[in-house]
Design a protein around this nucleic acid. Structure first.
Lengths: 349, 349
DNA sequence: TTGTACGCGTTATCAC
DNA sequence: GTGATAACGCGTACAA
């Protein structure tokens, strides 16, 4: 069936397009007779206003965009992302907004941003955020950045990445571990952690601070850094790589729970017991951290709250408000059962 | 800064809007001099085409919608949904499409569908699919239904829900269990399972078929049905409710893994051992089913493939193709460690 | 109470 | 070959 437009209805009703529009958006401006005539014709023809044409004039799409740094399958494989979506979703529920997932368009964030018909953007963990900021500014819609390096004048929501990482590392060091491995998140920098930015940099700084306090230099044979993809299989591969080492770690500190969970999976497959043979600490405190056996000791961050706060902020901005504050949400260690005291005599190759 | 439009550039360059548009979309139709003049002015002003205005004429948004039956926070709490998104995401990655999550707009699916500026819809597990179909037809964009009752002429993607459910129930019955509980998914029907539709109905039919084969009528004191919300906490509550019963089940068959996982959590909290004290079977085979201890015996369904197939289908439809086939993907039982043989003598209060 | 004109980018059609 | 005109779709300020 050919698309039914406002024009067609106007023609049949013998009125102007305006009158038809009023029938739906401001009925009081029409006489009862005209109104009913228009409405019945529209009903009969099954008229549905074109959302795009409508957005043209209203300047509103009823949708906010979530700009992610990687293709959807890559980001969704980390349950962290689901929980973040849940927080945003609460705001959508309250406000009646939809949510668009906006991955780079054939590698180009610029094209993705320019093509997305949304009222504003949330950005999550963008590494190339400087270039992205220019693109977003040009695009002319408000945006809120989450898990990036805070930038003056731009509303940002972050967590205390460094503090959390420091506590996590300190926890295993206090437990006596002196051979530790860090399962990091793939950075594209091949382990050159001094070039890290954003969340990765801050977490790394936290680990290093705790290491330094314990007198363990990063450049020692007792400290390893392995970068993993942010999903369970990435963690599994990371663990396998670690277990091929001559000097295996007695404790593993992972930059995300899903990596830690993958590592635990690999450990089980290799007959390595957690925490008897190796201790593991995660980061994020996703729901699954409670389901594993042993329960995963990890750094809790308020993921849902982070998403909700960022979305609330964006909605305020979209509605014309202003807010360029930086928010830093707290983190804290959650002790479960994946870490065990390590004493010298138990240390064996 | 005021929005830079094509008109402003045309004015400054002393050409028509058409020329400016050609500069970006069909440069060969302009003389080199005109082209460069337009391009440099556009560059200088930081021009970005308005995606909405562009969609007006192209009739394309570069975005597909996923219509979900509940608010985003409710659906995302089931990891099943993430994996489904992963499958859709693969198609987005290949085709350069974005994905819009479209929940009911203040309870109205009609408004949500009419307001969403997308090239087509995927629907997931819609209960009120008859009314929704009319809305979608009127909306005039192609759509593919997933996990609904198959409807003639509409492309549908489903799994063998009934077969999977039957095998799951048969599995615990073969293991000797005679007091079983079903942890169902909240239906809005207060347990009147004969009124179920779609996925729920098919799974229920599968359970009933196996029960019937074993000579266990549903209307017996030995078979219980409890409806749960589709998240871990729903499963936890379901288990707690079951454990308040006088005649506790020796086996629990859950309609989704996340409910089963929540039940396992509740069991652990109550000191009930799985599978020694109670056996549990799930449905879906989400990644977390491998992480629990004991590993969850469950019905595997190809979630990602389902999402990918549905999205591939939709893309074909959006591009003008036709396909109103019905696809039914296979399911199979995955045995892990959450089910144990039950003999009469072990049966105690 | 109802009609006119405008905003926005693309493209079929037409003019030279 | 080069480039202008008009139409698409809706909502709304403004005019009548």
């Amino acid at each position: 069936m050919a698309k039914v437009t406002i024009k067609e209805i106007a023609r049949r009703a013998g009125v102007s397009k305006t009158a038809v529009s009023f029938a739906f958006n401001d009925p009081s401006r029409l006489s009862e007779a005209t109104l009913q005539r228009i409405l019945s014709i529209a009903e009969e023809l099954g008229y549905v206003p074109d959302p795009i044409a409508r957005s043209m004039t209203t300047k509103r799409t009823g949708c906010i965009g979530l700009l992610v740094p990687q293709p959807i399958p890559d980001v969704i494989r980390n349950p962290f992302f689901s929980e973040f979506l849940e927080g945003i979703g609460e705001v959508c529920k309250e406000t009646g907004l939809s949510l668009m997932l906006v991955p780079p368009l054939k590698g180009s964030i610029r094209r993705a941003v320019n093509d997305a018909a949304v009222d504003g953007f949330l950005t999550l963990g963008l590494e190339t955020f400087r270039g992205t900021m220019i693109v977003l500014e040009q695009r002319g819609v408000p945006y809120v950045m989450v898990d990036s390096d805070p930038t003056l004048g731009i509303p940002c929501v972050n967590i205390d990445d460094q503090g959390g990482a420091r506590v996590a590392m300190a926890h295993v060091l206090h437990a006596g571990h002196r051979r530790v491995a860090i399962l990091g998140i793939k950075s594209g920098k091949q382990g050159r952690y001094k070039e890290y930015a954003g969340t990765l940099r801050r977490r790394m700084e936290g680990y290093l601070a705790a290491l330094s306090e314990a007198g363990l230099p990063m450049r020692s044979r007792n400290v390893h850094l392995v970068e993993c993809d942010s999903h369970a299989n990435g963690g599994r591969e990371g663990f396998q790589q670690l277990w091929r080492l001559k000097r295996r770690p007695t404790a593993i500190v992972a930059m995300s729970d899903i990596i830690a969970i993958g590592a635990m999976e690999a450990a089980r497959e290799l007959g390595v017991r957690v925490p008897d043979d190796v201790s593991i600490v995660g980061y994020d405190d996703i729901p699954a951290a409670r389901w594993t056996q042993p329960g995963l000791t990890t750094v809790h961050q308020p993921i849902r709250e982070k998403g909700k706060l960022a979305a609330d902020l964006l909605v305020k901005l979209v509605e014309g408000g202003t807010d360029s504050n930086h928010y830093v949400l707290p983190t804290n260690l959650v002790e479960r059962e994946s870490v065990r005291i390590w004493t010298e005599e138990t240390t064996a190759g």
